[in-house]
Design a protein around this nucleic acid. Structure first.
Lengths: 221, 221
DNA sequence: TCTATGAGAGTGAACGTTCATTCTCATTTG
DNA sequence: CAAATGAGAATGAACGTTCACTCTCATAGA
């Protein structure tokens, strides 16, 4: 706007705006995780962000935009977490790390927030579209990860990679929801069995001895 | 109540009442599946049931009671579906039938309704309690099914049956949510892979040749 | 240096709507 | 007639959103 003259604080304003937005999203995340999307009122979020409604609406045009913003942040974080797979010594350890990170290490609040977004995407078409784009992206990355693992000879190459990616997402969603809904569910102790099943689905059979069952302790790592 | 005298139409009144209740629950199911629990208003449900609000409240004291009623019906249906397992020729075919019935044959509306109930149980403590009771019951039945399969020598007997039951519920929830949330997900084509994984987890290793991967077409049935 | 100006961050009461629930009254049934 | 069954307008609370206004503070003019 006023860039004809010198720029005393050019990014400062934009930075302030961006900081404020993340502060608001943080507050909204806390409220949504605590009470769910429908029961968390804008007043609650305003209180959590120490801000008046009018001012909050200067940063986000609607409640829906808050979820959309949170979705985008989660997407960025999820995408980043795929980097760890490339650093792992082999396919299965990379997958195990990814699974642990997403399904065990996350706090209940984070997992609950994901559940909330999933549930919400069943209602709001806008959210649904955004969510499906993100999930499609993630599924594509998983499939690529599988193809890569096959190319490097670490997993079978005669599987339908897209179908396998879908199955992995089934497992992820299932674990998340069980955590969200069943207080007795222990993700930590379920993970080894899950990894064992995945190993069985994807590992190359070394036709003589290698039965999938034998790898359970390994997979638990 | 009035059983001191003869019973000219003893069940008639109670029967009418009960019929009306199921009609209302049917209507509510349709509305909840279509719009979700929060967006389906009592007015909508009244319209769907061709009934006035005042009258509907004579049969159910609150909106929450409607979900509770639907939960109970679902529980009854789920419990009944376990009967088919006993009629199956062996454990894995019984499990496959159960899985197909719950995860493939169900309509989108039925699956969506389950998703709705799960999401709702995250908010309403009353619903959460009811839901957890039901899920605990189902998990117990699955564990019993596993123990029975082991006793008959059809599956391994050195697995933690409760943990395995939890994993099976993870798979069920995951499939349901993927169906609810991802229009591209095809439960029909994912099921064989799922069953293959389960087979690998539970089948007795016939120490020489039997690798789980070989059973994929069988398990697909 | 001191005041005037203006932009935009921030406020919180108020609005219009939606919704679950209740109240009042009519109709049917036994 | 009395009780059960039904209809539908009314109620009151809660919510997302808006609006008229204030506060803060950097720069411009004197």
């Amino acid at each position: 706007m006023s860039d004809t003259v010198t720029e005393p604080a050019p990014s400062s304003a934009a930075q302030r705006q961006s900081d404020r937005r993340t502060e608001i999203l943080d507050a909204a995340e806390r409220c949504f995780a605590r009470s769910g999307f429908h029961r968390a009122s804008m007043q609650d979020i305003c209180g959590e962000a120490s801000m008046s409604p009018g001012n909050l609406y200067r940063y986000f045009p609607s409640k829906e935009a808050l979820i959309a913003g949170i979705c985008e942040r989660n997407r960025a974080e999820a995408v980043a977490s795929f980097a760890m797979v490339d650093e792992a010594p082999n396919f299965f350890e990379g997958l195990a790390g990814l699974a642990r990170h997403h399904l065990v290490d996350r706090t209940d609040a984070e997992v609950g927030l994901c559940a909330e977004i999933m549930a919400e995407s069943r209602r709001h078409p806008e959210i649904a579209k955004l969510y499906q784009t993100i999930e499609g992206d993630i599924k594509e990355r998983i499939a690529a990860m599988l193809r890569n693992g096959a190319k490097r000879g670490e997993i079978r190459s005669d599987v339908d990679f897209d179908a396998a990616a879908a199955v992995l997402m089934v497992l992820g969603d299932g674990m998340s929801w069980r955590r969200s809904v069943d207080p007795q569910f222990n993700a930590e102790s379920a993970l080894p069995l899950i990894l064992q099943m995945i190993h069985c689905l994807l590992a190359k059979q070394d036709n003589k001895t290698g039965n999938c069952a034998g790898t359970s302790e390994k997979a638990a790592s």
